[in-house]
Design a protein around this nucleic acid. Structure first.
Lengths: 270, 270
DNA sequence: CCGTTCTTTTGACTTAAGTCAAGGACAAAG
DNA sequence: CTTTGTCCTTGACTTAAGTCAAAAGAACGG
C-alpha cells in the first residue's frame, strides 16, 4: 500500500552517528567516505551500481541531521537537490488553509524523497519534517544529473522509484475519492499486517493522530472507527499501538468497498 | 493544475489518418516512417533527440486507433508498453466497487501515458479509455528500455515527465483531502482560464459528468455548485460549456480554501 | 420529424464525517 | 507526588455531499 516507504534492505541501518559527522559537513574524510559507500551500497536507488560508480558519488553527497519535529524543506522552496533517509523517519505532507494536515508519504531508511523537483525543475510541492532524530544524505541536483547522464542503470533505478511512487499516489487518490474512512483504515491495517509478516498481529508504529493524517481524516473520526471495529469484533487492541486482526475477511471486504461499515459487522448489538 | 495534460506544441496534430494505417500495423512503410518521425519529433518526451535517435525509435513503435468509448487497457493488465496520444483524447480512471469513477488524468495529443508500469514492472494501476476516436503510438517496454539505456537525454525527459505527473497527483491529493468541492471547481475554472489564455472566458471542453469525475464528485453535486456560483455572481454561463469569470478574486479565495462557499459570495439574497 | 437515449437540473432525504467541547489516560518534568 | 502537556476518547451538534427519484433539455439515428 501507499503508506510507508521501506527500503526492504536487511542491512543494519542503525549505526551510531553520534558526533562522527556534523550537520552539513561537505568534504568527507577517508573514514567517512568508507562509511558513505557502505550507506550508498544499501540504498535501492543505487543497486546494481559498480564500486567505481559509488566512489564517484561520494564527493557529491552530504550528511545532514535533523531533530524530531525539525522541518527539512517547505512547500515552495526551490528544489536544489534530494534526500535519502539513512536513519530515522521523515514525513512529507500538505497543509490546508485551516491547518489540517495530509501526509503524502512517510519515508524510512533507504528511501529517497524530494526527487521530483530535481527533474521537473520546480519547487517542492509539499513540506518535509523529521518525525524523530534523523540522518539524511543530501544529493545536489546538478551533480546528480551529471551522474545520471553517465549511468543508465542509475536512471532506470530512479525511473522505477518514481513509477512506484506514482503507483502509491494512484492508490491514495483512489482511497480518498472512492472509499470511506473505515475502508481506508481497514486497508491500512491489512497492509501493516502483511508488511510486518506477523500473521494477524500488527503494530502501528505511529501515533493515531499521524495515522489520521495519513488516512485523510481527523483523530476524532479515526478514534470512533477504531472503537466501532473493536466493538464489532473485527480487531482487538492492547491499548499500546498493537493490534490483532480478528476478522480478516470482513476487513478485506471493507477495504474493497464491498460492504459499508454501518451495515457490516458481526452485529454484537444489544 | 493537474487536470489536463497538454503537449503545448503548436504543431498541427490533427492530420487525417483515414485508412493510411490500420490498427496494430507493425512493419512501417517508408512513407509511414516519415510520418512517424514527424510525430515523434513533436512529442515533448523526445525533445532534444537527434534525427538518428528518432530514426532508431521508428521500428519499435506501432500505431493503434481506438473508437470513442473503447478501452485501451484495464486495471490489472500487464504493462508491456506505453502509449503516446497522437490525436484524440484519452482518460485514465479508477472505478469504485459501486461504479463511481475518479478520473486521474486526461491526456491530449503529445502526452505519454501508461509509462509507470514499464519501469516499475507492475500491472496497470488504472483503466484507460478513448474519449473520442484516437490515434495512439504504442512503445513496447523492452525496446524502449533499450533506447533509454543508450540515451541519457531520453531518460531525463522521461524523469521530468514522471516528476511532473507526481506533482499533479500531489495537487489532486491535496484537493481531495483538504479542499471542498466548490474550491476544487473554482481551481479548475481558474486553471482552464489560464490555460486557454482568453482572459475571463473559458470553455469546459468536456461534459459536466466527466468534470464531476475529475473533481472527485457526482454530477448532481457539481450541478448545484455551478448554479450557486452563478446565483452568487461568480461566474456566468452560455449554457453550452462556455463560461465567463465574473469574480476572479472570490474564485481564487475559494480555490485557496480561504473562504467557505456557504458563507462567501456577493449575497444576492432576497 | 419523432422516438430513444444521454446529460443536466432540481427537490427531498440520508448519511459520513467534521466541529466544538469536555474529560480521561499517560508520560515527562519539577 | 503533583504539575504540565500531549494524545486519545466520547458526546452533542452541524454540515457537506451522496442517494433516490423525477423531469426537462439536448443529441442522435432512423
Amino acid at each position: 500500500m501507499y503508506f510507508l516507504k521501506n527500503a526492504g534492505s536487511a542491512v543494519s541501518w542503525h549505526h551510531e552517528f553520534g558526533g562522527l559527522f556534523g550537520r552539513d559537513k561537505i568534504v568527507p574524510t577517508v573514514l567517512e567516505a568508507m562509511d558513505i559507500i557502505e550507506h550508498l551500497a544499501a540504498i535501492p536507488l543505487f543497486s546494481g551500481l559498480s564500486r567505481e560508480d559509488l566512489d564517484d558519488l561520494v564527493p557529491v553527497v552530504q550528511y545532514k541531521t535533523y531533530q524530531r519535529g525539525e522541518r527539512i524543506f517547505a512547500e515552495g522552496d526551490e528544489g536544489t537537490g534530494f534526500y535519502v533517509v539513512i536513519s530515522g523517519r521523515v514525513k512529507v505532507y500538505k497543509l490546508s488553509f485551516e491547518g489540517k494536515e495530509q501526509i503524502l508519504h512517510m519515508f524510512e531508511p533507504g528511501a529517497p524523497f524530494g526527487e521530483a523537483p530535481v527533474f521537473a525543475g520546480k519547487a517542492f510541492p509539499a513540506n518535509a519534517e523529521a518525525l524523530e532524530e534523523s540522518v539524511l544524505l543530501y544529493f545536489s541536483r546538478n551533480a546528480f544529473i551529471e551522474r545520471i547522464n553517465k549511468n543508465p542503470s542509475l536512471s532506470l533505478n530512479m525511473l522505477a522509484i518514481l513509477s512506484e511512487r506514482l503507483h502509491t499516489f494512484t492508490r491514495l487518490i483512489e482511497d480518498l475519492s472512492l472509499k470511506e474512512t473505515p475502508g481506508r483504515l481497514a486497508a491500512y491495517l491489512l497492509y501493516l499486517s502483511e508488511r510486518q509478516g506477523a500473521l494477524d498481529n500488527l503494530e502501528l508504529g505511529i501515533s493515531k493522530t499521524q495515522l489520521a493524517s495519513i488516512l485523510g481524516t481527523i483523530p476524532e473520526t479515526l478514534s470512533r472507527i477504531f472503537s466501532k471495529m473493536t466493538k464489532q469484533g473485527l480487531i482487538d487492541s492492547d491499548g499500546h499501538g498493537r493490534f490483532r486482526i480478528l476478522n480478516r475477511l470482513m476487513l478485506e471486504r471493507l477495504a474493497a468497498g464491498e460492504v459499508r461499515f454501518s451495515q457490516s459487522g458481526s452485529h454484537t448489538e444489544e
